[in-house]
Simulated assay, not measured.
Amino acid sequence: MHIIETAIPEVVIIEPRVIGDERGYFFESFNNNKFCESVVETKFVQDNESKSRRGVLRGLHYQIPPFCQSKLARVVQGSALDVAVDIRKGSPTFGQHVAVVLSAENKRQLFIPRGFAHAVITLSDEAIFQYKVDNFYSFEHERGVSFQDDALNIDWHMPYEEIIVSEKDAGLPTIASGNAYLFDYSKDYYQ
Rank of each mutant, 00 (worst) to 15 (best):
residue 95 G to V: 14
residue 127 A to K: 09
residue 172 L to R: 03
residue 7 A to Q: 14
residue 85 V to C: 12
residue 190 Y to W: 10
residue 158 M to E: 05
residue 170 A to M: 05
residue 183 F to A: 05
residue 14 I to D: 00
residue 185 Y to R: 07
residue 19 I to K: 06
residue 59 G to C: 13
residue 150 D to C: 06
residue 8 I to L: 03
residue 158 M to K: 08
residue 13 I to F: 04
residue 65 P to G: 09
residue 92 P to Y: 12
residue 20 G to R: 07
residue 105 E to M: 10
residue 41 E to Y: 02
residue 70 S to V: 00
residue 156 W to G: 08
residue 56 V to E: 06
residue 181 Y to V: 05
residue 32 N to M: 11
residue 164 I to D: 03
residue 16 P to I: 04
residue 71 K to H: 03
residue 116 F to E: 13
residue 76 V to M: 11
residue 26 F to M: 13
residue 72 L to K: 09
residue 146 S to Y: 05
residue 171 G to R: 08
residue 22 E to G: 10
residue 46 Q to P: 05
residue 143 R to Y: 03
residue 112 I to A: 01
residue 98 V to T: 15
residue 20 G to S: 15
residue 137 Y to L: 04
residue 90 G to Y: 13
residue 46 Q to K: 12
residue 187 K to S: 03
residue 180 A to I: 03
residue 54 R to S: 13
residue 47 D to W: 13
residue 37 E to T: 14
residue 147 F to A: 10
residue 173 P to K: 04
residue 83 V to P: 06
residue 5 E to I: 02
residue 171 G to V: 01
residue 123 L to I: 08
residue 174 T to G: 07
residue 139 F to M: 12
residue 27 F to P: 05
residue 53 R to M: 04
residue 72 L to F: 15
residue 156 W to Q: 07
residue 136 F to V: 10
residue 111 F to I: 11
residue 135 N to G: 14
residue 112 I to W: 01
residue 98 V to N: 02
residue 70 S to H: 02
residue 124 S to L: 03
residue 45 V to W: 02
residue 165 V to K: 07
residue 115 G to H: 01
residue 39 V to E: 00
residue 40 V to K: 00
residue 168 K to C: 05
residue 57 L to E: 14
residue 4 I to F: 11
residue 120 V to D: 07
residue 127 A to C: 15
residue 93 T to S: 11
residue 163 I to Y: 05
residue 163 I to M: 12
residue 49 E to S: 14
residue 106 N to S: 04
residue 50 S to W: 02
residue 105 E to G: 03
residue 184 D to Y: 01
residue 97 H to Q: 09
residue 53 R to I: 07
residue 31 N to R: 12
residue 129 F to A: 05
residue 131 Y to N: 04
residue 7 A to H: 11
residue 110 L to H: 06
residue 68 C to F: 00
residue 53 R to C: 13
residue 40 V to T: 00
residue 19 I to S: 06
residue 32 N to V: 12
residue 43 K to A: 07
residue 88 R to H: 11
residue 45 V to P: 01
residue 188 D to P: 08
residue 21 D to H: 05
residue 19 I to T: 05
residue 182 L to H: 05
residue 155 D to E: 13
residue 57 L to G: 10
residue 43 K to Q: 13
residue 139 F to S: 15
residue 154 I to A: 02
residue 16 P to L: 01
residue 38 S to Y: 06
residue 125 D to Q: 13
residue 79 S to W: 09
residue 68 C to V: 13
residue 28 E to D: 08
residue 154 I to G: 09
residue 88 R to T: 02
residue 72 L to P: 03
residue 180 A to L: 02
residue 133 V to Y: 13
residue 156 W to S: 11
residue 40 V to E: 00
residue 6 T to Q: 11
residue 31 N to E: 11
residue 89 K to G: 14
residue 148 Q to D: 04
residue 137 Y to N: 05
residue 42 T to F: 00
residue 89 K to F: 13
residue 144 G to N: 03
residue 42 T to Q: 00
residue 18 V to R: 07
residue 84 A to P: 12
residue 80 A to N: 09
residue 18 V to H: 01
residue 175 I to W: 01
residue 48 N to R: 05
residue 34 K to N: 15
residue 158 M to I: 03
residue 48 N to G: 06
residue 70 S to R: 01
residue 56 V to G: 11
residue 81 L to G: 08
residue 119 A to K: 15
residue 89 K to N: 15
residue 163 I to T: 04
residue 143 R to A: 08
residue 68 C to Q: 11
residue 172 L to M: 09
residue 65 P to R: 06
residue 97 H to E: 12
residue 179 N to F: 06
residue 126 E to S: 13
